[in-house]
Simulated scan of single mutants.
Amino acid sequence: MSSAKADSVVPYIATWSEEHWDEHPRVVERPDGSGIAYPDEILADRDQRGVLWDRATSRPGHGKPQFARIHPLRQRRAMRKLLCQTCGNPADNTCHGVLWVLRDTGQPLTEHLLVSEPPICLPCARLSAKLCPALRKGHILLRAESFRLFGVDGLRYRTGHPAPVPIDHHVVSFTDPAIRWTLADKLVREIGDYTILTR
């Protein structure tokens, strides 16, 4: 578990002030018009599905924690490998499903939920409920038996001249053609077959 000081917990997915990425990255339209790309793109800029991701340096523990800003690479790793968003170790996973803690917005829950928050382990769930300001306002602890990778959350672009034009930040599924025009910063799972433990 990372910590800026011995007495303060910094979530694994949080950004540190010495980690940088361009707030307004330069993207170009691909020559065949099929989406966006970096003009100096390298293999590491895309995931195995061909999705273009925000570039970010990785220096956890350096500088000051930026709790409100999620690091795209660590968020993606935690979601893909089902790691705890707080400590980075495996999330709590039993025969009843994987553990998630979500902010309670007061809205009714649907049968399937799209989440960009990685799962959590039981000790960190208790700790997060006490320390995280957003969760202190209300949270839902649940176990999900289904949690398929759904898509990404990111900035969508449209064709434009001289460069593609950003439109909005949105969640897009892997099967949506718009994903080729999206610069991803979070991996999204669809969770279902869940049981609410506390609310």
Rank of each mutant, 00 (worst) to 15 (best):
A178F: 03
P31V: 09
I191V: 15
P25H: 11
L142S: 06
L127N: 08
D54T: 13
E111C: 04
L122A: 15
A91V: 01
S58L: 15
A129T: 10
I167F: 04
E117D: 15
P123M: 04
S17R: 09
T94S: 14
P25R: 09
L52F: 11
D7V: 14
R189P: 02
E23C: 10
E29I: 11
D153I: 02
L142V: 05
T94F: 05
R156M: 15
Y38E: 02
R49K: 13
A163P: 00
L52P: 03
H96W: 11
T105K: 07
F67R: 10
T15M: 12
A163S: 10
L43I: 06
D40I: 04
R80I: 01
T57G: 12
C121Y: 01
I196F: 11
I196L: 12
D32S: 06
A68I: 11
V152A: 03
V98K: 00
H112A: 12
F150V: 04
A68P: 00
T86M: 12
V98I: 15
D40S: 12
V115Q: 00
L52Q: 07
E18R: 13
D47E: 08
L155T: 10
P25M: 10
L122E: 14
Y12S: 00
A184S: 05
R55G: 05
I13H: 00
L114Q: 08
R77M: 02
P72E: 08
R30Q: 13
M1W: 07
P162G: 03
Y194F: 15
V98A: 00
T182N: 03
R46L: 09
P162D: 07
R59W: 11
D168K: 09
L149E: 09
R30A: 14
A4F: 14
V152F: 05
E19Y: 10
H139V: 06
K137R: 14
H139A: 13
D168L: 13
K137L: 15
E41A: 14
D92E: 14
L83M: 02
P11K: 02
E145V: 07
I191K: 03
R189S: 12
R46M: 07
R77E: 05
P164H: 04
Y38A: 07
C124Q: 03
E117S: 14
W53F: 08
A78E: 04
R136M: 13
V188A: 03
